[in-house]
Amino acid sequence: MLTRERLIEKVLLLLALSAIGSLALITIFIFLEGLPIILKTGVRHFIFGAHWAPTKGHFGILAMILSSIYVTLGALIFGVPLALACAIVLAEFAPPSLTRILKPTIELLAGIPSVVYGFLGVVLLVPIIRGYLGGPGLSLLAAALILGIMILPTVISISIDAMNAVPTLYREGSIALGATQWQTVRKLVLPAARSGIITAIILGMGRAIGETMAVIMVAGNALSIPTSILDSVRTLTANIALELGYASGAHREALFATGIVLFIIIMILNTAATLIAGRK
C-alpha cells in the first residue's frame, strides 16, 4: 500500500518535469541545429552582417534583427498607451458592472488567431496606408499597428490585475484628503502597480517579437534594413517561416540559427518578467 503511494508520487514527479523537460529539449534541438552555422559564419558576421543570401552562403541577419526591434517598438508605441488607458479606466473609473462585462470581452479577444489579425491588416489597413501615405502598404507601420492591437488583451488584463491588487484603502485615504481621482491614480495607484504593469509590457513585448503569421502577412518581407516606417520589412520570425518550407543544408541550419537569436531574446524577456513580477 505504502509502495503504491510512493510509486504514484514518483510518476507525478515525472509528469511535473514535462514542462521543464520540453523546454530543455527545445533548447537543445534548436542549438544543435543552429549553432554550427553561427560558429562557422562567426557570431559577429551572423548578427551584424547585413547580407542574407543563404543559397550563396551569406548569412547575415542584421536587417531582420533591426526589423524585429523596430516592429516591436512600434507595437509598444501604439499598444501600450491604449492598453494602459483601457486598464486605468476599467480598474479605476468605470462602474464595476461595466468592468465585469468589458474585461472578459477583452480577454476573449486574446483568442482571435494571429492569421485573422494578419488578414484584416491586409484587407483593411494596408490599402489605407498605401492610399494615404504612399509606399507599398505592406510595411513596418502596418506590422506595428497590427501587433499593437494584438498585444492589447495581454497588457490590459495583466495591468488591471496589478491595479486591482493595490488596496482600496489607500485610494479612499487619498480621495478623503481631497485628491481628484486622476491625481490618486497618477500619484498612488500607478506607482504601486508599477512592477505589475512593467511585467505586462514585457510580456506584450515578448508576444510582439515572437509573433509570426500576422507579421508575414502585412510586413512585406523585403530583405533590407528599413529606412522609413513605410518600408517593407522582414522580421526574424518571418524569415524562419518563409524559408523553412524549402530550405535544406546550411540554409536550414541558418534558419535554426535565426531561431536561436529569437529564442535568446525571448528568454531574456521572460526572465526579466519573472524577476520583476516576483520581486514584490
Partner: peptide, 23 residues
C-alpha cells in the same frame, strides 16, 4: 518546474514549429 512552465508559455509558436519540425 514553475519557471519551466512560464518560460515554455512564452516560447513563440515559430520556435515550437522549428522544434517540432526537427524532432
Amino acid at each position: 518546474i514553475r519557471f519551466g512552465a512560464e518560460c515554455l508559455a512564452g516560447v513563440p509558436s515559430i520556435i515550437l514549429g522549428l522544434f517540432g519540425f526537427v524532432l
